[in-house]
Design a protein around this nucleic acid. Structure first.
Lengths: 245, 245
DNA sequence: TATGGTTGTCTATATCAATAGACATTTAAA
DNA sequence: TTTAAATGTCTATTGATATAGACAACCATA
């Protein structure tokens, strides 16, 4: 482990940030579960081939995120370690998909706008460019910790008032039900990953350089008619997707 | 656009790298397709709210990656811009999945090892921990550009010699066929994203801070018996996954 | 051929990132 | 109570990062 160069210099990414990212991931993998602690600073410094002060900068950043807590004389304790699993199937739903992985699920409506469909949105919803659509900006939390931010479009003609319904029920499934759509299915999902922009960084409580898993999804009713197109951004260190075919 | 703070300071990620990442993504989105050029350095400096020299550092990094090429007196030309699409379905195969998106596909065998199944591998392959498995390390290229690196495990009893077959045929599907397995299906796929480690950075020709899309996949034969468990790492800025349900 | 717009190069300065070493403070266990 | 091991704090130095300004070199075009 000590021989492997795990960090690189002069890449525009500070060593302390590379080390912080790697320790966060190692914690997530359960490597330190036996002790519940991160190895001593001197040991980490040796492993990564850097000065102890550099390791301290990394641990300070993780402490800021609430992932570890340093106790003088004892060591650095692991405070939090989770990765939620999202099954992606024909019957994918956010809230029930989380199931018992979190105690409290919340879905907040950040913004609601009626607008003309862009070329992309029109294509996915089977509309003509310029037709009216409703766009919702939503933020989802698991146990008060932000998990994903989503932008969703709905045909305005069919789903007038979906913003208000979503605000009340905090669920797309229930909002659809209130508007007379009792069931729907996931037709396609596209998954990519990229760096977060500043707005998403803030809402998802992430640090720059953090990664987003991005899912572009289209849902249809049981007749195959598109009812929703959405772009969801997930904090990559907090989730994984599972595709069962 | 100029008002939005698109980069953040004092985060351990240098401004020039944040700007490089954002320009690379903007190129990928096709925003500059009309001119085929990146905006002038002075314009970019204004947009990002930084000094022109900082923008130049970002563009130098992108030039190093072969994405742009600066021409004195004219501007900075876009050289390359691609994102391969991988459909993930019950019949997912790497080579045919790429289809006509690339001219030349190659699959290289980096390493072959027979070993005892770890707990994770045994669970996925339906074996007992410690049973013999064959592990292949492979690198896939599209038009001589590395796209993904994969680690695959196969039950050793059933697929002896699969390494040699893969080296010859450069395809899992054909290697399976050589060993008497004419057909197989994708059972499950788990998708995550994370930062690349140093070995993957080198093999995939990436820069630190780069993102990997990671697909853990399990294939079975037509009787539902597991035949392969693999962990594939994709350069996130070169691919996207499509899940059709 | 003159001009405006663009990239290339140079110098100088301030701040952040990383190393190095020394010593203090706290905790747990001998 | 002593000791070892761990985190906390301080000073000092070097290299990378970012800003600022000036000017050269090159290209397309009026």
């Amino acid at each position: 482990m000590a021989g492997l160069k795990q960090v690189q210099r002069q890449t525009g990414v500070a060593l302390w940030r590379q080390i912080a990212d790697r320790i966060r991931e190692t914690i997530g993998n359960g490597t330190y579960d036996e002790t519940g602690m991160v190895p001593p600073e001197t040991v980490l410094a040796l492993q990564f081939g850097v000065n102890r002060h550099t390791v301290r900068s990394a641990l300070a950043a993780l402490a800021q995120e609430g992932i570890v807590r340093a106790v003088q004389g004892r060591g650095t304790l692991i405070e939090r370690k989770e990765r939620l699993n999202f099954p992606i199937t024909r019957r994918t739903r956010f809230t029930s998909g989380i199931g018992d992985q979190a105690r409290e699920m919340r879905s907040l409506l950040l913004d609601e706008v009626q607008e003309e469909a862009s070329a992309e949105v029109a294509r996915w919803l089977g509309l003509k460019q310029g037709e009216q659509v409703i766009r919702l900006e939503t933020l989802r939390q698991a146990d008060k910790r932000p998990v994903s931010k989503a932008t969703s479009w709905f045909p305005a003609a069919r789903f007038a008032g979906i913003g208000e319904a979503y605000r009340k029920r905090e669920s797309i499934t229930k909002a659809f039900a209130d508007l007379g759509l009792s069931d729907y299915v996931r037709a396609t999902t596209e998954v990519t990953a990229s760096h977060a922009n500043t707005a998403d960084l803030a809402d998802l409580e992430l640090t720059p350089g953090a990664i987003l898993l991005i899912a572009k999804a289209m849902n249809t009713d049981l007749d195959g008619l598109p009812v929703q197109y959405s772009i969801s951004r997930f904090a990559a260190d907090r989730v994984q997707f599972t595709i069962e075919n």
